[in-house]
């Protein structure tokens, strides 16, 4: 069990008015604690409520039921704007501002917090180095970057104001496998070095298993399972078991397809 919960969901529910008559229960009675320094991965099928769960934490949307606390405080009692400024958020689509350069995108939250221009410039250089981008990229516009570079900028932007908490919504999707591997490892190293608390949504079970301390499995708005990879492998639930088996199944099929010494 985590030491001190930095983020805690307690019986949280959120529904959206659906297209038809019945509302969609996007998040349904979820209770979950993320400890200080923990790396939690959230997995689950499309539409299972992962993004909704994340957005509830920094009040991009408001919960219908239950309570959410961040660093021990009920988020309903906090000013949402300052709450968001102290939580880093990497958006599912990247969502860099297309009319603002790389440096401007990264330095946004510090600027909103009133840092001086010199402090921001220093911090931007630091972050570019952290996410391994050449300093010459500072002045580029997002559309002048590759997909992977954009995602690095997205991560840098989330880290800019030195948050303790980082929420990441499929941050490493749409990348070539090598870049993806490198960025993943880089991020995990950062997480450890900066003592961050990270919640990362992913569709990739292997990624979740490799990076995370614990994994939360969502299905149809409900928290199906929560635990370390080892704990999850004990789960009797067929959905969870199936999910856990996918990386190994894939690996086995790949092994069968590729000659032992042929793969690089």
């Amino acid at each position: 069990m985590p030491s001190f919960p930095l983020i805690a969901y307690s019986h949280v529910g959120k529904s959206f008015a659906g297209r038809g008559s019945s509302p969609v229960m996007a998040v349904d009675d979820v209770s979950l604690e993320v400890g200080q320094g923990e790396f939690l991965a959230v997995v689950g099928g499309s539409g299972s409520g992962k993004t909704t769960l994340l957005r509830l934490a920094n009040r991009l949307i408001e919960a219908d039921h239950g309570t959410i606390t961040v660093e021990g405080e009920d988020v309903r009692g906090l000013d949402p704007v300052s709450l968001r400024r102290r939580i880093g958020y990497v958006f599912q689509s990247g969502a860099l501002f297309p009319h603002i350069g790389v440096a401007g995108n990264i330095g946004l939250t510090p600027k909103l917090l009133g840092w001086t221009a010199a402090e921001i410039a220093l911090r931007v250089n630091e972050l570019l180095e952290l996410v391994r981008l050449e300093p010459s990229y500072r002045d580029r516009l997002p559309h002048e970057l590759s997909g992977g570079q954009r995602q690095r900028v997205g991560v840098a932007r989330a880290l800019a104001a030195k948050p303790h908490i980082v929420l990441m919504d499929e941050p490493f999707g749409a990348l070539d496998p090598l870049t993806r591997d490198a960025l993943r490892d880089d991020y995990r190293a950062l997480h450890d070095r900066l003592a961050l608390t990270t919640v990362m949504i992913t569709h990739d079970m292997a990624e979740a298993l490799l990076l995370a301390d614990r994994i939360a499995v969502m299905q149809a708005g409900r928290l199906k399972a929560l635990g370390t990879p080892a704990e999850l492998s004990q789960s009797g639930d067929t959905y969870v078991a199936n999910l856990l088996r996918t990386p190994r199944r894939e690996a086995e099929r790949l092994n069968a397809l590729l000659p032992r010494d042929g793969a690089a």
Binding site: V81, R84, Y89, F91, F97, P98, T109, L112, L113
Partner: peptide
């Protein structure tokens, strides 16, 4: 793009800052 207005909120902009920047 709704994703951008949400990102503006997400990085901690007030509605006014989101409007102007």
């Amino acid at each position: 793009d709704g994703a951008l207005t949400e990102a503006a909120k997400g990085v901690g902009m007030t509605p006014r800052q989101s409007l102007f920047t």
